[in-house]
Amino acid sequence: HPDSVWLSQADHQITGFIVWQTVFYESELHLIAVAPEYRRQGIASALLQHWQNAVQQPGATRLLLEVRASNETAQQLYRKHGVQTCGRRKNYYALPDG
């Protein structure tokens, strides 16, 4: 599974998507997004559940993701799915010019 993408659709429209990469026993979430008009309907949870299920078959035992410290909504979603903080990168999202 070098790169995997999964789409959520309704009424012939993409409502959300998730992109990840799995290498050996580690899978990293690169991107998850839900269209604004479809938020708060469980789509992001379904996408995360799909990722968690999909990477179990190739045997991934470690799932990783990064989230901006100020994105509390995403952090709540990830915690709901059992994600735990394992580290913080100081100034990771800071602009190069400060």
Rank of each mutant, 00 (worst) to 15 (best):
P36E: 15
N91F: 10
V34C: 04
Y38T: 01
W20N: 08
A60I: 05
S27E: 08
G98Q: 05
S8N: 12
R39L: 01
G98A: 01
A44V: 08
L29T: 14
H30D: 13
Q13H: 10
W6P: 05
Q76T: 09
L95N: 08
V34F: 06
A94M: 05
G87W: 12
T22E: 01
Q76I: 09
A54R: 02
Q56S: 10
G16N: 09
L95M: 02
V34Y: 07
D97T: 10
F24I: 08
A44Q: 05
T85G: 04
T73N: 12
V23M: 11
H50Q: 11
A44M: 08
I32Q: 07
K80Q: 13
A35S: 12
Y78F: 13
Y38A: 03
I14M: 13
P96Q: 02
S27F: 00
A74Y: 12
E26A: 07
I18T: 13
Q52L: 11
A33M: 06
T15L: 05
A74N: 11
Y78D: 13
Q13W: 02
A10I: 04
L7M: 11
P96L: 00
I18G: 15
R89M: 10
S8L: 01
Q57S: 03
V34K: 07
I32N: 06
S4Y: 02
R89W: 09
Q76S: 11
L48K: 04
R88H: 11
R40G: 00
Q13N: 03
G42N: 04
Q49E: 10
Q13M: 06
G82L: 02
H81N: 09
L31C: 05
H81A: 10
I14Y: 08
Y25H: 14
L31E: 11
S70N: 15
V83I: 02
A33D: 02
Q49I: 03
A10M: 09
F24K: 01
R40F: 01
V67W: 05
H50C: 07
K80C: 06
P2E: 03
Y92C: 06
E66F: 01
G42T: 02
Q76C: 11
W51H: 03
V23G: 07
N71L: 07
A60T: 15
R40I: 00
R89S: 07
R62F: 02
Q76A: 14
R62T: 15
E26T: 15
Y92H: 13
Q56L: 10
Q57M: 03
N71F: 09
Q75R: 15
L47M: 03
G87S: 08
L64R: 14
T85Q: 14
K80R: 06
A35I: 03
